[in-house]
């Protein structure tokens, strides 16, 4: 299931990722904080970056202002 649905809403998985990444986190920290498997976090982050809901900096991820509106 993709994180971002055709109507622009996001899945519960995506919301969990964005909620944990309100402060800068690594993939492993997001997996731990969201209780999601690593592979789901990595694939979700890819989509969330494309949608500009999350941003990457030095291997850490942070929810953007646009992303915060989706939570």
């Amino acid at each position: 299931m993709p994180c971002i649905l055709p109507d622009g809403s996001i899945t519960e998985t995506a919301k969990k990722v964005l909620a944990v990444a309100m402060t800068e986190k690594s993939v492993e920290e997001i997996a731990k904080g969201s209780s999601l498997p690593l592979f789901r976090v990595r694939s979700s982050i890819r989509e969330l970056i494309d949608a500009e809901f999350i941003a990457e900096k030095n291997g850490k991820y942070l929810t953007t202002e646009k992303g915060k509106e989706k939570i």
């Binding site: 299931m1 993709p2 690593l38 592979f39 990595r42 694939s43 979700s44 890819r46 989509e47």
Partner: peptide, 14 residues
Amino acid sequence: TSQGKLRLSDFKGS
């Protein structure tokens, strides 16, 4: 996949 687009490398660490 049935849970979205995945890469094999997404599983690294497991």
